[in-house]
């Protein structure tokens, strides 16, 4: 809101603001009750020793001290970071390439676009179960296909080297189409005059992509990478259905550890501490992204 130059900041201005708050109240209440409050509660719980069915006891920084020495928890952080690195870049690049392909004016393109979004609509649990069959080392479709070209496929989900990539592959498969939609929308928002002008000046298609398209896609890129990173850091359901954190802890991501600590060990205090760790990691990564894109993004294409 800009300041009123004539100094008429009386009624209209203030009552307008009042109404503004009124209109956002429902969603603000939602955010407060279902987002801010739980975060605060979890923060509070992280200072307690609370095994379910016993009474919570204040423990100060005990849980954080335990976390500092908990090699398994830091292993989980490492696995999660690996997972994010496997997932997000691949998913983003693939989605971008798909969007460029599907941005052509070809007959029936609408159907292709819809087709690529279908995986995103599947329930992760059902999808995980289906992929379990595909990954079966002996009768599975994937190794069956590999054997046709003379390759003996690995024991996907029981080999510590392959389990995490396998789970990442499923998530890439599921989310690429959905991300493609955003890039497609972003591409269509770029005025064609800019491309025409660049072409007239002698820019090659590759140059036009890197100098014109990509910079102007920054708002989309910002949104897609932020949501993907957060989503990847929070990965849980596919792991739950496909590997249970195994083999040898190779897919023991932090969210899965939080789940086991809370609902298997019933140790809510320490689970809250682990949740705070994940919260801080996501916060730092997201803030870094905001800074990175903040300097490089223009929202005005006219």
């Amino acid at each position: 809101m800009t300041a009123d130059p004539a100094g008429r900041t009386g009624r209209t201005g203030r009552s307008g603001a009042w109404y503004g708050y009124l209109f956002v109240t429902p969603s603000l209440l939602g955010v407060a009750a279902f987002l801010l409050l739980p975060v605060l509660i979890v923060l509070g719980l992280s200072f307690f020793d609370w095994k379910l069915l016993s009474d919570p006891m204040f423990a100060g920084l005990e849980n954080y001290r335990r976390l500092a020495d908990d090699g398994a928890a830091w292993h989980s952080v490492w696995v999660t970071v690996l997972y994010v690195l496997l997932c997000v870049p691949l998913q983003t690049v693939l989605a971008m390439i798909l969007a460029l392909l599907l941005n052509q004016r070809v007959r029936g393109m609408r159907y292709y676009r819809a087709l690529f979004v279908v995986p995103w609509m599947a329930t992760p649990i059902v999808m995980g179960l289906t992929w379990n069959w595909i990954f079966d080392p002996r009768g599975g479709a994937l190794n069956g296909a590999l054997s046709l070209i003379g390759v003996t496929g690995p024991d996907w989900l029981s080999d510590p080297a392959w389990a995490l990539p396998a789970v990442a592959l499923v998530n890439v498969w599921q989310h690429t189409g959905y991300n493609m939609l955003f890039f497609l929308a972003g591409l269509q928002g770029i005025p064609s005059e800019l491309h025409d002008a660049a072409a007239t000046d002698g820019a090659t298609p590759v140059q036009r992509f890197f100098r014109v398209t990509l910079p102007l896609l920054n708002p989309t890129m910002f949104f897609v990478t932020v949501t993907n990173l957060i989503g990847a850091f929070q990965i849980f359901d596919t792991i739950f259905v496909m590997t249970d954190g195994g083999p040898s802890g190779s897919t023991d991501v932090i969210n899965f550890r939080i789940y086991n600590t809370a609902f298997k060990d019933f140790d809510f205090g320490y689970a809250s501490t682990l949740s705070m760790l994940l919260f801080v990691i996501i916060l730092v990564v997201t803030l870094a992204q905001v800074r990175f894109f903040g300097k490089r993004t223009t929202y005005d294409l006219s």
């Binding site: 379990n132 990954f135 079966d136 080392p137 024991d155 989900l157 496909m242 590997t243 249970d244 083999p247």
Partner: peptide, 12 residues
């Protein structure tokens, strides 16, 4: 059958 096909949680 080999454990790669029977180990939980994906065992069949």
């Amino acid at each position: 059958p080999p454990a790669t096909r029977t180990n939980p949680p994906t065992g069949k």
